[in-house]
Structures are given as structure tokens and as C-alpha cells.
Design a protein around this nucleic acid. Structure first.
Lengths: 167, 167
DNA sequence: TATTGTTATACTCTATAACTATA
DNA sequence: TATAGTTATAGAGTATAACAATA
């Protein structure tokens, strides 16, 4: 997790005028600080994401959620194992398909998810402190357009592929 | 690398209105696509960063560069080993301190660095395609203010620490 | 024959600590 | 005694493939 711009003596490593570098760097910083913000309640950003997805899709299978997050089945097992051991969600039998497990948050899971959500909101507020409401709106708009464009870029038509594939 | 927003069936996982989430997500996407952009010339973003740092600080020691990038000494060894095996840089003896190695780019290293730089510029241009010049300027300004603020946030005064430490 | 979940395995990345040769 | 570089080792994190139960 090389924090590139904590550069000390030798000329700072920052390319300075690159939007890409700035965003990538900020992205790492935000992830790291969100991780730290969640630590006191015993979950990490990945678990938070997964719990929210479960809460919005109670009863779905591991496979279905894994696909939504592009997480392979084998990885879902360990992820769900951890949350289940912490008593935050449970695998229930699915009467309609005895191979599948229906995922549900526990009461404790819902409480922790609420706490995590409020921590996320705190962090968002802290992070956006230096911006006015109007500036924040502007920033969201610009970022959304970049994100939209990025999606198009990475999902080119067959024959034009220049990256790996997914889409 | 869980691409969170390729969400298919179950309600999209995106928190939608969070600057933090958007930036973190975009950061991953940008890193991934930069990695893919550099792949054809046989280097990755970390090596690119390191080569540029070397080119701006010819003759410095592994320790000095590692410190600038917050990379521990033991990790620098493997990083430099790889670049040296690829013939992109070399360790020369340092007459003033026989423990240290003076790092220098080779001619080939300089060529590859130039190629990588031009790929980085291409990617920046592609990424910012949907923005006008004025919008790009605006975005840089907003991101820089967030980055500045973030730096302040993660370097709080002793006694107020809520994260890990570095600073 | 295909699919859900699981296990086993291996590979990458990284950090820590012990070691060497100098200083 | 401290520092630059190295090596060894161990721990995450993740992907792949083989497997069991069910469809």
C-alpha cells in the first residue's frame, strides 16, 4: 500500500498534473481511512458492502450475491463464514432448492449495519468538509461522468478488446 | 478485485450518493486500467513509479528511495531485482559508502520510462475525454482540496489519533 | 449434465525479524 | 552501536480446480 505522496527527501513522486493519479491516490486513502473508521465495530469495508447487499436482498443465495459483486463462489464461503461466526448473518435452508443457502441478517447484524452506515456518513461528511454544498454537487457530477465513461472504456466491443475481459 | 458496481440482478450495490465510494471505486478502476495499459511494455504501475523516481534521483540508495515511497527495505530488494533483471536499471557501487548501492537507469530503462510516460498521458487523455478543459481544471482543483484535507485528517495531533500512525 | 456450495491447493503480495558487511 | 542491503519466513488475500449434494 505504498503511500506514494508521503514523499520525503527525493523530489516528490507525484506526477502533479494527472487526474488519474490523483483519483487513484485519493481512492487508496479513502479506503484506508474507511477501513480504520469501521475497525472499532469489528467489520471491514468488504463485509459492510456484503451486509448491505444482503439487507437489500434477504434470502438470496451466496451464488447470486457473489455474482453481483464479481466475487467467486469459493471466496464467498470464507466471507460468509466470518460474518456468520460473528453472529451478523445466518445461512438458512432454502426449501425450494436444497443446494442453496438463503442468507439473512440477524438482529445483531442489522444493528451493526446501522452503526457502520452511520460511520460511513460521518466519514463522508468529514471528507467533504472543505467543499461547499454546491461544490460537492459539482464534484459528484464530474466523477459520475468519468465513472460512466470508464465503464464504456473497459467494455469495448468484441474485436476491439485491449484489456482483459469482463462485462 | 471485486468490481462492486457491475451489479447485475440484486439491487445495485452502489450507495449512490457518496463521494467517498465513487472516488474509491474510480481509483480501483483507474489503477486496473493503467496496469493493463502498461502491460504491453512489460512494466506495472509500481515499477513505473519507481523508475520515474530513480530518473529524478540518479545515484540515490535503495533506502532513500524506499523511504520516499514508504516501502520497507526488504521489499525494495525484490522490486529492484526485477527491474535489474529486465535490464532497466542497475546497482552501481557507491565509492563514498560501500554498504550502499547507487541506482541508475540504463539506456533501455530510459526508453521504457519514456514509453510508459507516453502511455500514461494517453490514458489520462482517454479518461478525461468527456470533460471540457475548463471542467478538467475544476475537477483537479476540487480533488486537490480533498487530498489536502485528507492529509490533514490522517495526521492528527498526538492524543487525537483515531487511525493507525504514519506521518 | 449442470449448478450450489465446499474444500484443497497454490500463488502473489507484503511485513517482520535475523543476518552481513560496512560505518 | 547503528545503518544499507539481503535473506528467510510467515501471514494475508485471492484464484483455480476438484469434489459432494442436489437439480
Amino acid at each position: 500500500m505504498g503511500d506514494v505522496n508521503s514523499a520525503g527527501d527525493p523530489a516528490s513522486a507525484s506526477p502533479g498534473r494527472s487526474v488519474g493519479f490523483l483519483i487513484s491516490q485519493l481512492g487508496f486513502a479513502v479506503s484506508r481511512s474507511f477501513h480504520a473508521a469501521l475497525a472499532p465495530i469489528g467489520v471491514d469495508p468488504k463485509q459492510f458492502l456484503l451486509m448491505r447487499l444482503v439487507s437489500e436482498n434477504e434470502g438470496k443465495s451466496q451464488h447470486a450475491l457473489g455474482e453481483a459483486l464479481s466475487i467467486p463462489a469459493s471466496r464467498m464461503v470464507a466471507l460468509i463464514d466470518d460474518l456468520e461466526e460473528q453472529g451478523l448473518l445466518e445461512r438458512r435452508p432454502n426449501p425450494e432448492d436444497r443446494r442453496a443457502r438463503a442468507l439473512h441478517l440477524t438482529g445483531e447484524g442489522r444493528r451493526v449495519l446501522a452503526d457502520a452506515t452511520s460511520l460511513a456518513i460521518d466519514q463522508e461528511r468529514r471528507m467533504c468538509e472543505p467543499l461547499t454544498v454546491e461544490e460537492r454537487r459539482q464534484l459528484m457530477g464530474l466523477l459520475r461522468r468519468l465513472a460512466e465513461h470508464q465503464r464504456l472504456l473497459s467494455c469495448v466491443h468484441p474485436g476491439l478488446h485491449r484489456d482483459e475481459e469482463h462485462c
